[in-house]
Amino acid sequence: MKPDPSEHPGASSELAGAKTRVQARQETGGQLERVVASHADVDQVIGVILIVGKITPAETWDVLREVSMRTNTKLHRVAESVMAWGRGATFPAELRSELDRQLQPPTQARLSDES
């Protein structure tokens, strides 16, 4: 036996509101998963660049940030490209060039900025 809607006049709007809240939470959960995955990629790339560049974690963060800004590439995209390169994919030339430049000793990098 179905419930009589006239007995619960606000029930349909409450149900619609509940559905909207559930959808919003699902979307938020999906966004959070993407952020966590992106953060993990960046952390892994920091480790790789730290070892390859023989620099500190703070310097590594600065290198990634500079590569991102100077190539107009979102930081998580830079990290994804480095991760893909580690798995054998082609590393975009613009990113590779800027990463190489950022990993040069400070005096050489400054000279490159001046030219």
Rank of each mutant, 00 (worst) to 15 (best):
D4C: 07
D4V: 04
H8M: 07
G10K: 13
A18F: 12
V22Y: 12
Q23P: 05
A24Y: 11
A24W: 10
R25M: 14
R25E: 15
E27P: 08
E27L: 15
G29K: 13
G30F: 15
G30H: 15
Q31F: 15
Q31T: 10
L32E: 14
E33V: 12
V35R: 15
V35K: 15
V36P: 03
A37E: 14
H39N: 11
A40D: 08
I49A: 01
I49T: 01
V52R: 10
V52L: 04
G53Y: 05
G53D: 06
K54T: 07
P57E: 06
P57G: 02
P57R: 11
W61S: 10
D62Q: 12
V63S: 00
V63N: 01
V63D: 00
E66D: 05
V67P: 01
V67G: 00
S68K: 01
M69S: 08
N72G: 04
T73Q: 04
K74Y: 08
L75Q: 02
H76W: 09
V78F: 05
S81H: 10
S81Y: 07
V82R: 03
M83G: 05
A84L: 11
G86H: 09
A89W: 09
T90E: 06
F91M: 13
P92C: 00
R96E: 11
L99V: 03
D100E: 11
Q102H: 04
L103S: 02
L103F: 06
Q104W: 11
Q104I: 03
Q104P: 01
Q104V: 02
P105G: 03
A109F: 08
L111F: 08
S112Y: 09
D113Y: 13
D113R: 15
D113V: 04
E114N: 10
S115D: 07
